[in-house]
Amino acid sequence: MSNNRVSRRQFLNYTLTGVGGFMAAGMLMPMIRFAIDPALQTKAEGDFVQTSQKIDEITEEPIKVDFTFEQVDAWYKSDVTEAAWVYRDGDAIIALSPVCKHLGCTVNWAGDSAHPDQYFCACHGGRYEKTGKNVPGTPPTGPLDEYEVAEKDGFLMLGKKIPNTLG
């Protein structure tokens, strides 16, 4: 203990500041936790989604495969249709996400007639090789994401998005 006596004024200052601090924290804490809840939610991992694409009809030329799933957006449930670019590489089936890694527009295979063997993003002219590798000198800074793939009764199933593994 120090020898300084706590004055009446100091004592009141400390207690009132402390009590005030607790009251402010008690008010703010619930509101802040409320606001940041989305950042702390843990996401249930996505299941595989069935598509209507026959595996043995997939060739080396990428095709667009649409698939539909029920998306739960908080209180709003809806059927969402997304797409993947799918092609065959030997025995493997590759499914790429069409979401541009620049700013999220949608890419199209052979979308630019000057580059018929690349994916093209019309928003800012981003381009990708067939494996999803971004073409240097165009806006995207990374390769297209990949979907996990599986097969069921000869049909293609798509899983969750993972970073591109094809290099």
């Binding site: 989305p38 996401k43 998306q71 957006d73 908080a74 700013l103 999220g104």
Partner: peptide, 30 residues
């Protein structure tokens, strides 16, 4: 596009994105 730009901030970009969009993936109701 705007949220993608915010998400490109180093280190905390992803957090900013979720706090703006209200969801890690969906741009929707929230």
């Amino acid at each position: 596009v705007g949220i993608q730009i915010a998400a490109s901030v180093p280190f905390i970009g992803e957090l900013i994105k979720i706090l703006l969009a209200g969801d890690a993936e969906i741009l929707g109701a929230q």
